[in-house]
Amino acid sequence: MSERALGRAFLTPAFVVMGLLALFPIVYAAYESLFDFDFFTRTDFVGLANYVDQLTSPRFWSAVFVTIAFTVVSVTLEFIVGMIFALIMNAAFKGRNVTRAVILLPWVVPTVIAGQMWRYLFEQRPGYINEWLGLGAIDWLGSGASMFWAVVIADWWKTAPFVGLLLLAGLQTIPNEVYEAARVDGATWTQRFRNVTLPLLTPSIVVALLFRSVDALRIFDLADIMTNARLETLSVLAQRSIVRAPQPDIANTLAVLTFVMIMGIGLIFIAMMGRDVVGEPEEGS
């Protein structure tokens, strides 16, 4: 088998599965978003009117803003802590195995449970967080900025190990010789980190940031459980029009808009990692 044929054969199973599962819902939503609905029944073709409605709705833009703010803040924090986790897990010291297990604990708690857990932790009664940290009676989950930060902290806690694991795996592929060489040259730890680790780790960093961003942009469970949907992200808004008060036209339009937004952000990441991973840029046909 030629390498080219092998490549096609290797790609086929993945794209068949993903195509069947993912393409159908997207095409379905895109098609349905062009219609008006009478409850669940499709009625008139309205073209892009649903999009005009959403794109001129302050509520939509507010959800976009909340979602993007949440993503930027939580992914940044998760990246920093994830990097620290990776360096710790990568280091040799007594009790390393225990440490690794401990670092992974947050990641193994199902999100739905983690949401409930953090809701209890943040609530004023009995006020675990408030009391443990001596904060007095802060109403974390009621509204506004504190509610935003409460959800950020829960997400941060839950998913930093995800970033940590990915970066740890990346660290493992950096050959020792590179460090040895740098050390021989008298580079300090900081210099080695900046000049050796970071560049060689870039592909893993990009993948971690990409998938964390994609996930954070779809944040739903934590916002729904911890704040009873008061923190209105795009997915919370979409779920409202799917389940709480069904309006399929709004739901489908939101789904497509979310898709476009996330895909756009994803493409930027892919362009960033492209050269590292794919080798040459576009090879053409």
Binding site: A14, F15, M18, L21, A22, L23, P25, I26, A29, L210, F211, V214, L217, R218, F220, L234, S235, A238, Q239, I242, V243, A251, N252, L254, A255, T258, F259, I262, M263, G266, L267, I270, G274, V277, V278
Partner: peptide, 14 residues
């Protein structure tokens, strides 16, 4: 690569 991403960017509720 971009096509790969498609499967993961749709809101789960949708």
């Amino acid at each position: 690569l971009a096509g790969t991403l498609v499967a993961t960017v749709f809101p789960p509720v949708s």
